[in-house]
């Protein structure tokens, strides 16, 4: 991942990205995040949510794949029922491809349903993206292969026409190189991670986006945030994401 080579020493890229996501969760301009759901195989978003909680913010956090103490008593179907009612405020989605209209593609490329490359499939994205007031898009790989002018297939659209029931869309896209804000129509480069330049990001991004004259650097984790990640956040995550905790925190 891109920030590995040039990041200041002292924290892991995963810690940096979790902190970045946590700050987006806490963005006061965004709709409140009282109940956050985290999908399968999403340890960095999960770490971000636990960091928000351990920072003292009231938030209910539902990890879909928590092996013990899973939040649902009606099976995974309950997540979609909760979301259908508007009881889930924030969800994370990724994509094999993501384009400038915040469309995501989890299907594949080539002929339907993925004759060139096949991704896993859409999971619940076609529902969650429209029914959740806000979504944070997260994909570590930031390359023209992933961030494309137009996705080959739309698993879930970033923009819906008037008259289509929709509660919200992407708040932002976080990658291994940068943060983009989404205003419902277009992405704007919001910050570059340490070691990245706007020119390099432009070269690695296949879709068009707004570039303000001044681009701040994505702020690094504070010592207090790092202490929380390495202590209580790791302790919360170990049962569900043992491989991740061993790799990042060595425990």
């Amino acid at each position: 991942m891109a920030i590995t080579a040039s990041a200041p020493v002292g924290f892991a890229p995963e810690e940096f990205l979790a902190t970045t996501l946590a700050r987006l969760i806490l963005d006061p301009a965004a709709p409140p995040a009282r109940h956050i759901a985290v999908g399968a195989a999403s340890p960095i978003p999960a770490a971000a949510c636990f960091l928000v909680k351990t920072l003292g913010h009231e938030a209910r956090l539902s990890l879909l794949h928590k092996t013990s103490g899973n939040p649902f008593s009606e099976g995974t179907r309950e997540l979609f029922d909760l979301t259908g009612q508007g009881r889930i405020d924030l969800f994370f989605l990724g994509g094999g491809e993501i384009d400038g209209e915040a469309n995501i593609n989890l299907i594949g490329t080539g002929e339907w349903p993925g004759s060139e490359a096949r991704f896993p499939g859409s999971f619940g994205s076609a529902f969650m993206y429209l029914m959740t007031p806000r979504t944070i898009l997260f994909r570590e790989e930031h390359s023209p292969r992933v961030l494309v002018p137009r996705v080959a297939f739309v698993s879930a659209p970033g923009i819906s026409p008037p008259g289509h029931f929709r509660r919200g869309t992407a708040q932002a896209l976080v990658t291994g190189r940068a943060v983009f804000a989404f205003d419902g129509r277009r992405f704007t480069l919001a910050s570059c991670h340490p070691g990245q330049t706007p020119a390099e990001i432009a070269a690695q991004t296949g879709f068009a986006y707004e570039t303000p004259p001044e681009i701040p650097e994505t702020p690094p984790p504070t010592p207090a945030e790092l202490a929380l990640l390495r202590g209580p956040v790791c302790a919360e995550m170990r049962a569900t994401y043992p491989g991740f905790c061993a790799r990042v925190w060595g425990r």
């Binding site: 029914m131 879930a156 029931f165």
Partner: peptide
């Protein structure tokens, strides 16, 4: 009925 999904190529197929 099911909410969401409108605009997805999953529906188109």
């Amino acid at each position: 009925p099911l909410r969401g999904v409108l605009g997805s190529d999953v529906l188109a197929h």
